[in-house]
Simulated assay, not measured.
Amino acid sequence: MSTAPSPASGTTQGTAPDLLNLRDVGGLSTTDGRTVRPGVLLRCATPAFVDDEQVARLVDELGVATRVDLRSEKEAAEATSAAFDAVAVEHLEVHAGETRWDFDSAHLSDWVAGHYLRFTEHSPDSLVAFARLVGDPGRTAVLAHCTAGKDRTGTAVALTLAAVGVHEDDVVADYARTEQAMPLLREQFTRLPSYQERLAALPAEAFGSTPETMRRFLRLVEQTYGGARAYLRTHGLTDAELAGLERHLLGD
């Protein structure tokens, strides 16, 4: 089973070099042979460091019209560049309750996948609202992020992609691409005063994004809810909205 990143999945880092882990998920393949359209859904890490020029390029070159912030309001207030005032923002906090990063490293993928499942338990309204935003045909590109662009963003993006039939291997590979950005991200985090305590509390293993983690998470979603599509429907996304999401992400 391949877990290499899809070559069609767009690397857009040059547009905003201080917005790490930035990419367009366009080009990923579905199980019925279609592909995700570029310019609909992008993902990235912390928006704390971009300047006005980089944000202008995101808008002009990539069509970004909406930024979806999956962090808490406190995190957003502490670490968001004022340059992003030029882009409409939707705050959709994704959280896992009171769970802390505490695991046996020998079972890392199992623990992290279970942590992602807790996002689905504690944040269904935000995850459904995210799918609605991505499926809104009146929007140009939606840019989703949390802090690393890995856990909360990875969960929201994976559910949305899986719900329209993107192949599991492509969902997994897109998630795993974050690993490449982690060395630079960790350096960025040291420049976020509000992040110092959290950074010190996290074990080194928390900064990985292994393919096996996302594959196990998708299995848990299947076992628990009957799949991503069923999860979104159970928590309020209508059949018409699902059809619209599929149409907007994949085209006719």
Rank of each mutant, 00 (worst) to 15 (best):
L202A: 12
T120W: 03
D174W: 07
D169I: 12
D110S: 11
V171M: 03
L192R: 09
G138Y: 01
E212F: 01
T155E: 04
W111L: 00
H115T: 08
P193R: 09
D136H: 11
Q180F: 01
E205F: 05
V171A: 07
T155R: 03
F207T: 13
L143V: 13
Q196A: 15
T238Q: 02
L133K: 14
L218R: 14
F207D: 11
R118A: 07
G208M: 02
F103I: 06
G236R: 05
L159H: 09
V221Q: 02
F130V: 08
A176H: 09
E179W: 04
Y225T: 05
D110Y: 01
L108I: 10
L218W: 06
H235V: 12
R219F: 09
S123Y: 07
P124G: 11
E121P: 09
R229V: 06
M182P: 02
R233L: 03
P193D: 13
H145R: 09
A201N: 08
M182G: 00
T160F: 01
A162I: 06
D102F: 00
T160W: 00
D125M: 10
L127Y: 05
Q196V: 14
A200W: 01
D110Q: 08
S209A: 15
E168K: 14
R215C: 01
F189L: 13
C146W: 02
A141Q: 06
C146Y: 03
E222V: 06
S126I: 05
A201D: 09
F130Q: 02
A228W: 02
T153F: 04
P137V: 04
T190Y: 00
V112L: 08
E205T: 14
E168N: 12
W101K: 06
V134W: 05
S209G: 13
R118Q: 13
R177V: 14
V221H: 01
P183W: 00
A148N: 11
T155V: 14
L237T: 10
D174V: 13
V112Q: 09
A148K: 08
V171K: 04
L108D: 07
T234G: 12
T155D: 03
T99G: 11
E197K: 15
V164H: 01
M182K: 00
T178L: 09
A141Y: 00
R100T: 13
Y225G: 05
G149N: 03
